[in-house]
């Protein structure tokens, strides 16, 4: 299990705000942090990876403390074992696909690297440099590379946002498959509702650094608000006026439902 508690002052487009979150990730859970861009999602991932400092916080992964500002503990990224998949993949341009995967391994194991590439259908591309790969292929390599280091957690920073919709759907499934086979939890940040619904076991919705909702993916679904009930328009039906965000709608419901 992973415990995360982080506070950090951030500077957004409309003034400063505080990132202030506290949550847990269960073993093998796929957690999606959902929120608009600029709400602090990426910063949170970077703090968990050790790439950025928190003002105060506590991060514990399977009993190991990665960050405890009170005790002055702050493990560098090298010691944290996170499989970070960057938004633009961050593959090493000077290495081939296979070399990228081998570089990530703590103990170089070519057989295992080839197996992983086989699983992701990349074996025929193993000697290519990243500049000769398509977006989807780069994404796959980035994922395989992150898994090759046998991380404690997979951190995904909108990994599919640069891909076209069809490819996205295909890779979403693949991503989840790989995460489940690796028996590790994943934390993905996203501002894509459909993607979040498809992948998440649990969703945390944040806005301007604060958690506004958390729970099953359905918490993302539109929240309707009842504005007005007209009982007189029809003898058999109630007419409800609902508001979904800024849209008003009229819904007719049989009166018998309420009897």
């Amino acid at each position: 299990m992973i415990r995360v508690r982080v506070r950090k002052r951030l500077f957004g487009v409309d003034g400063p705000f505080e990132l202030d979150v506290d949550f847990c990730i269960e073993d093998r859970e796929f957690l999606v942090i959902f929120g608009p861009s600029g709400c602090g999602k990426t910063t949170l991932l970077r703090i968990i990876a050790g790439l950025e400092k928190a003002d105060s916080g506590y991060i514990e992964v399977d009993g190991t403390i990665w960050l405890d500002t009170e005790k002055g503990i702050n493990l560098p990224p090298q010691k944290r074992r996170v499989g970070f998949v960057f938004q633009d993949y961050a593959l090493f341009p000077n290495m081939t696909v296979l070399q990228n995967v081998l570089y990530a391994m703590r103990k170089k194991d070519k057989k295992r690297a080839l197996e992983l590439l086989e699983m992701a259908d990349l074996i025929s591309l193993k000697d290519r440099k990243p500049s000769h790969l398509s977006g989807g292929q780069k994404q796959r390599v980035a994922l395989i590379r992150a898994l090759a280091m046998e991380p404690k957690i997979l951190l995904l920073d909108e990994p599919l946002s640069a891909l076209d919709p069809d490819l996205r759907k295909e890779l979403q499934l693949e991503l989840k498959n790989f995460q489940q086979r690796a028996f590790i939890p994943a934390l993905m940040v996203s501002h894509d509702q459909e993607e979040t619904l498809r992948l998440a076991d649990k969703v945390i919705r944040i806005n301007r650094g604060k958690i506004v909702a958390s729970g099953s993916p359905s918490t993302l679904l539109p929240q309707k608000e009842l504005i007005y009930i007209d009982k007189k328009e029809s003898p058999t039906e109630l007419v409800l006026i609902l508001k979904d965000r800024d849209i008003l709608m009229k819904v007719k419901v049989p009166k018998s439902l309420f009897l």
Binding site: A49, G50, L51, P76, P77, Q78, K79, R80, R81, V82, G83, F84, F86, D88, A90, L91, F92, P93, N94, Y103, A104, R106, R145, M149
Partner: peptide, 27 residues
């Protein structure tokens, strides 16, 4: 050299020195 490939190398457990010689300088 893109910052994210340097950070990627760090998250993959590589020291700053190893990152310098195997990622930064070759690029």
């Amino acid at each position: 050299v893109p910052k994210n490939i340097i950070e990627a190398s760090w998250t993959l457990g590589k020291s700053k020195l190893e990152t310098l010689f195997r990622v930064i300088l070759p690029n």
